[in-house]
């Protein structure tokens, strides 16, 4: 963030999710953001058709974490030719659940006065990292021991130059909480916890060596299929 801006959860840049040529002139670009403990789908709608667009509505297919619109898509005035409007759609996680492949895939239907259009997009799973995800230290140690080593996944995150304090601060902005830090043989080991909106916890050990620019990330989770998506988020959060 710039001067005077609060640092917060990582927000990916908007991407084109629905090109105009596939939607009779409607172009949709968007991103996902976690703000003030809430989840938002931030959309830009552009009318590239020859007539005005009205009567917008949005619907999600069931998905892995129950993401659903928390209200209607608020497009209150007709969208004129060549006009773009920005809309922020609040989401909740109370929708129907179906495991998607990839896990963070979301299928969306958008309707207007012309037709119904469909597209898929993917959200960073850090969207689902909740604010009360700092695990008690005693519980962390017990959980770390209790989760079997088969449920541990290790990743190398290459070419980073942040020190452990900077990494810890950056990650905390997206609700990855450092529970403990230890230094052993010129390596900093950060023990971190993450809680997802569906109550799944992930425990992490981030190992930072001063002599190499590579981090080692070990993730322990009772639902190990989410680990690769959490690792992707570490990369994104640390690089942005």
């Amino acid at each position: 963030g710039g001067v005077g801006m609060a640092t917060g959860s990582y927000v990916p840049p908007k991407a084109v999710w629905l090109p105009a040529m596939k939607a009779k002139g409607l172009e949709i670009s968007g991103t996902f953001a976690r703000r003030g403990g809430g989840i938002h789908m931030d959309l830009s709608l552009t009318n590239n058709a020859m007539s005005i667009m009205t009567d917008f509505a949005i619907q999600f297919n069931r998905n892995s974490f129950g993401l659903a619109p928390a209200g209607p898509l608020q497009v209150l005035t007709p969208l004129a030719q060549n006009q773009t409007i920005d809309v922020s759609l609040p989401l909740n996680t109370n929708g129907p659940i179906m495991k998607m492949e990839p896990l963070n895939n979301l299928q969306v239907a958008v309707k207007n006065n012309i037709d119904v259009f469909y597209f898929s997009c993917q959200y960073p799973i850090s969207l689902l990292f909740v604010e009360d995800g700092k695990m008690d230290r005693q519980v962390f140690l017990a959980t770390w021991k209790d989760i079997p080593s088969e449920n541990e996944t290790q990743y190398q995150i290459k070419d980073f130059h942040l020190n452990s304090d900077a990494a810890s601060t950056k990650l905390q902005g997206s609700n990855v909480f450092t529970v403990a830090k230890r230094t052993v043989d010129a390596q900093d080991l950060l023990y971190q916890s993450i809680k997802l909106t569906n109550g799944i916890w992930a425990l992490a050990e981030l190992r930072i060596q001063s002599i190499t620019p590579n981090y080692m990330l070990a993730l322990k989770c009772r639902a190990p299929e989410v680990s690769q998506y959490i690792c992707q988020c570490y990369e994104l959060l640390l690089r942005n």
């Binding site: 230290r137 005693q138 140690l141 770390w144 403990a180 230890r182 230094t183 052993v184 043989d185 390596q187 080991l189 023990y191 050990e205 190992r207 070990a218």
Partner: peptide, 20 residues
């Protein structure tokens, strides 16, 4: 005392992970 025990437990965990 619990705090000291937890500090010690994290140190042991880190030691053990860094030097398996």
């Amino acid at each position: 005392e619990l705090d000291d025990d937890l500090d010690e437990a994290f140190s042991r965990l880190a030691e053990c992970r860094a030097n398996p």
